[in-house]
Amino acid sequence: MAGMMEPARRESLLTALRVGSGILFFGAWQLTAMSHVFSEFLLPSVPVVAERLWHDLVSGDLVSGIVLTLIRTFIGFALAAVGGIILGVSIARVPLVRWFFDPLVSAGLPMPKVAFLPIFMLWFGVFDTSKILMVAFSSIFPVIVEAWAGTQNIDKYMTWSAMSLGVNRHRFLWEIALPAALPQVFTGLQVALPIALIVDIVCEMQMGGEGMGGSIMTDMRFADSPGVFAYIVAIAIVGMVLVKAMEITRRRLLLWHQETQTA
């Protein structure tokens, strides 16, 4: 919206900038590293980190780290998804459940759940069970809240139409309420997955047990800075892929939804 350059030329210039931004990022990193403003330890150069990534990839360390982290994250996330949807829908539809869980959920949602990590260590030890449950506990709240809101806010005209068309109570849940709530439920899942990954990495950093969080912490303790940077890059890529995958799934799942049409 700024200057008054000729629109067509301006558009192609902006496209070039957009494509170039990635190159610019790594270029700036490399230039800073080469300038020796910071030591090799504080900021290893791009080739050094790339080589380290390649090395870890070939040796299989990186793959096993990613796989371990993803398994823990996904199991914890799946528990949160299933539990959160069941609880959210029940809260919306069963007054007694709502009465009991409303204050618990509104108190639990804004709490920093990571603080409970030592309690999980006390109860479940430092191995997979404890990490997975911690992930589930941390990421369940957004799912509950969105599933609850999504089921609660179903358009009343749609409900009336379905009722006059003869849907019964049991069918209503499966055929109307859940599909109608799906966009919002999915929003909850999209909030929950990054939290699951963040918390799993914290758990691995704190409790050990390999995985990407465990490995990055080990590298840090050995002051192995190329290793730390290699894992940061790997973790960033994993995060990116997961979020992108959720977006694609959402588009596929919600083909009927208007947001898909306008995109």
């Binding site: 330890f41 950093m205 969080g213 990055i216 973790i235 994993v238 979020v243």
Partner: peptide
């Protein structure tokens, strides 16, 4: 943006 934020801690300690 989707970068798991907790992974930043080791670099910052470094």
């Amino acid at each position: 943006y989707p970068m798991p934020k907790s992974a930043l801690i080791p670099v910052m300690i470094l």
